[in-house]
């Protein structure tokens, strides 16, 4: 098994566009997941039982079913409900919904870690609930939940490989396509592995940098 670099260099254009699709679906899915997750967490934390119960069911269902099955339901089952999506929007929505319940659990843990008394004090000072969330709770909990968030974001990076099954031309699909053209399956797949490892490693390095950055005020307090 000799690795022929031309297999990669001959297809650099395709690989580049596949990489962009992976990056695009990943980042859009993460953003959607973070927003949905924050909404779910806020509804769970501040809402009454009528809101919490259906959300709980939704979270349990999404957490109990494979991402691939959710994608199938959205992409192939969607048209029956009048929801005909192109592969890439379907993939982004699927990724966002899948990520949102995990993000919501992380945010919920964060909200619970901030003492309620702080919010009560803020209310007495005339700070609105939204300001309370954005300026008092989120900055403090971010320090605690950042490692979990970064971990989930890398998990979503790996889940983008599954998007190839609903024909999204992302990195995995492009590389296996090159593999079936050239019959150099092992070479292309090994290159693909290296690509994902670099992506995941870059993401967790960035996470570590951010952890230091958002945790700065804590060190300052310690001094």
């Amino acid at each position: 098994m000799i690795f022929d670099p031309r297999i990669i260099t001959d297809h650099l254009d395709d690989i580049g566009s596949g990489f962009l699709v992976t990056l695009g679906t990943w980042s859009s899915g993460v953003l959607l997941g973070l927003v949905l997750g924050m909404l779910i967490a806020v509804a769970q934390f501040f809402g009454n039982g009528l809101i919490r119960a259906p959300l709980r069911v939704f979270i349990e269902i999404i957490r109990s079913t494979p991402f691939l099955v959710q994608l199938f339901l959205l992409y192939y089952g969607g048209p029956a409900f009048g929801l005909s999506l192109d592969p890439i929007p379907a993939g982004i929505i699927g990724l966002g919904v899948y990520g949102s319940v995990y993000f919501a659990e992380i945010f919920r843990g964060g909200f619970e870690s901030i003492p309620r008394g702080q919010l009560e004090a803020a209310q007495c000072l005339g700070i609105t609930p939204l300001q309370g969330i954005l300026r008092i709770q989120v900055p403090q909990m971010l320090v605690l939940i950042l490692p979990a968030l970064v971990n989930m974001i890398t998990v979503l990076c790996k889940e983008t490989a599954v998007l190839s099954i609903i024909t999204i031309p992302e990195l995995t699909m492009v590389m296996t396509g090159i593999g079936s053209e050239t019959f150099a399956f092992v070479e292309t797949l090994l290159a693909l592995c290296v690509g994902y490892l670099l992506l995941v490693e870059a993401c967790s390095r960035l996470g570590m940098f951010l952890e230091k950055r958002v945790g700065r005020f804590m060190n300052r307090q310690a001094q």
Partner: peptide, 22 residues
């Protein structure tokens, strides 16, 4: 741990499928 947690499972499975015959 770094390798097997960092690569998507789908890619690992594909690699095994094509690698074992090799």
């Amino acid at each position: 741990i770094f390798v097997f947690r960092g690569i998507p499972l789908l890619v690992q499975l594909l690699l095994i499928y094509y690698f074992l015959p090799r």
